[in-house]
Design a protein around this nucleic acid. Structure first.
Lengths: 348, 348
DNA sequence: GCTGGCACTCGCACGTCGTGAGTGCCAACA
DNA sequence: TGTTGGCACTCACGACGTGCGAGTGCCAGC
């Protein structure tokens, strides 16, 4: 029907106008700013229907209309057109990210870049341990019966854990248990995916020389814990200052809960969940379960790719902002940055 | 003079009342809440003098008085009495920090603890590299001619750097340059303070076998850069949600500049500068040079101690909050936490 | 099914005004 | 000389009233 078609255009126009002006948009203004070919009266009728269907709402009688979460959702799914990045933006991405050396550096630059590009809070997850492989393991003796185990993954991530180990007995003369342990661990784990580590650990324990078994058991246990627990994934957050853009308008319930949610990284990590590099995930307002985020939207996507299918990501990155955001632009920015980061990491 | 004495008590009372109520305090309320033994009229006279001297000011005619930065400064220097922590607070510190294993864990817990205890933003600096000694160096071959160098310090801090190295020529048969490099670096650097590293590096370069000199030079250069540059010090920030406590009252110019300053860690790091474990440093409002912090105060102190004199700290920790804060309480909390963290780190 | 017209609603900005906390000054007192 | 009660004055703030105007819903006509 021609009706439906136009109604959707009205919805699109409302979203666009509201996002750019931050004022509830009325039928008259809409007719003036977009040539929809109909009068404001007709638009009013359409708006009434849209409101009845729950896509828009009015803050108070005789104010303009504002999109609801459902309205944004529809806009994102059906109405928004891919918005190619400007050349300046593409350039900014390259200029910003080229020259990064370490993983830390790459992620740090990325988060700043995304925050600047989208003028929102940017988040990036460290490459998830579960999908990484072991490049090297280092064991250093600490005071007492504690060992420091340093894990270096093929993505360049470095994690350390302090491990309490049982005392070693029956050491064959002329050998160094720590050095032996190091050699043993490396020969067993290097090159293995971390998901397989628990299996490897069991095998290793059986074949290890008796006097090292205590050490191997303790260290393996820590390694396995470290990666089974998804809470161990780390998140980098940047651009929180952007939350204050637009005064207190954007986040009515004050931004305290939002800041809390961002500090409790788990919340955001769970939301980003299983993002794939191929598909930008948008989570709008009330769709977010955590209460601190119910007034915000998250746009995220996976970066890097693991395995042949390319549908597993090394980690996720994205932005957090008011529901009233430029979804099309932000989706494009997030996707472009993720792609570039993926390339960068693949090179090293 | 008895005069002066009483005037100072008036100033103290004003600071205390204002901090707890967040309302400009008038002569009458002051006379009612504190028994200063004089009437409100007399207090008015004292207030006039205090205002003339710049310790207090009135937001507008016929409102109460509010302390100026100078007033807070005087209060902190001369008037505040040490406020011992409650038993509950001491307990909280122990409960919160005991059971931490890694350095990361200790610092993470500390920052959360401080934020919770003082209800402000907490910051903690990683143990500064310059004052740490090398416990171990690890070298891992990356793709191409890149090496990953991992530095483990005696404070448990782990830092990695990716180093571009020149191709190695004239490798004697049967030797592994990377393994040789690792052995060489460890025998030279382990146990050495990082401040002396540049000297050590020069010596090492002279004695190294010719075919390894390129590698040694590149890696040493990176190591030296890493620690000479104080900007490499890292900062952990927590409790930013506390900035929103008290609505927009506390930070009139909105908290955007403050959030920016906190993200630009350098700013805070420079402010904490050379904190000693023995002395709590308070930096109030306009005393802070960085413009984002001119509406805030920083209370910081060093933790851990290096060398016999005990006046060099491993790093600093502290809190950032509105100038209108409970200085006495916060100074006590910061000092107590720092002392405890110092103990924790000394044990390991 | 679209349009212009019209009556109606109601949040917001603005001006007025009373209130009260707080001040400065002064004369009297110790 | 320092303290006190008294008094006139100031002025931010909140309550109240009001006009404006954007926006709406509805209806008759095309």
């Amino acid at each position: 029907m021609a009706h439906d078609e136009r109604r959707l255009q009205v919805l699109r126009a409302i979203v666009q106008d509201y996002v750019s002006t931050n004022d509830p948009v009325g039928s008259k203004a809409l007719a003036a700013r977009h040539d929809l070919g109909v009068s404001s009266a007709t638009i009013r009728n359409d708006m009434a229907v849209l409101e009845e269907e729950g896509y828009i709402t009015q803050p108070h009688t005789s104010a303009g209309r504002v999109p609801t979460d459902k309205g944004y959702r529809f806009f994102v799914d059906k109405l928004s057109q891919v918005k190619p990045l400007s050349i300046a933006e593409r350039r900014a991405i390259e200029r910003f990210l080229d020259g990064a050396l370490d993983l830390d550096d790459v992620l740090g630059r990325t988060v700043r870049l995304l925050a600047q590009l989208t003028r929102n809070v940017a988040v990036i997850q460290y490459p998830t341990l579960a999908r990484s492989a072991v490049r090297h393991l280092e064991v250093v003796q600490l005071a007492g019966n504690r060992l420091l185990v340093v894990l270096i993954t093929d993505t360049g991530r470095v994690e350390q854990r302090s491990v309490e180990v049982p005392p070693v007995t029956d050491v064959p003369p002329g050998t160094d248990p720590v050095a032996d342990l190091r050699a043993l661990l490396n020969s067993a784990f290097v090159g293995a995916k971390l998901v397989e580590a628990s299996v490897t650990a069991v095998e290793l324990l059986e074949t290890a020389p008796p006097h090292l078994r205590g050490l191997v058991a303790a260290v393996s246990a820590t390694l396995v814990e470290t990666l089974v627990e998804p809470g161990e994934d780390r998140l980098l957050v940047g651009g929180t200052a952007n939350l204050t853009r637009g005064g207190a308008l954007d986040f009515p319930g004050s931004l305290r809960p939002l800041l809390e949610a961002l500090e409790e990284q788990v919340v955001v990590l769970r939301l980003m969940g299983e993002v794939a590099p191929s598909h930008v995930l948008v989570s709008i307002g009330e769709e977010n379960e955590h209460e601190g985020l119910t007034g915000a939207s998250l746009v995220s996507v996976g970066y890097g790719s693991v395995g042949g299918t390319g549908d597993l990501a090394l980690g996720g990155l994205g932005i957090v902002g008011p529901t009233r955001m430029d979804y099309a632009g932000n989706m494009a920015a997030v996707r472009a940055v993720a792609r570039y980061v993926g390339q960068l990491l693949a090179e090293s």
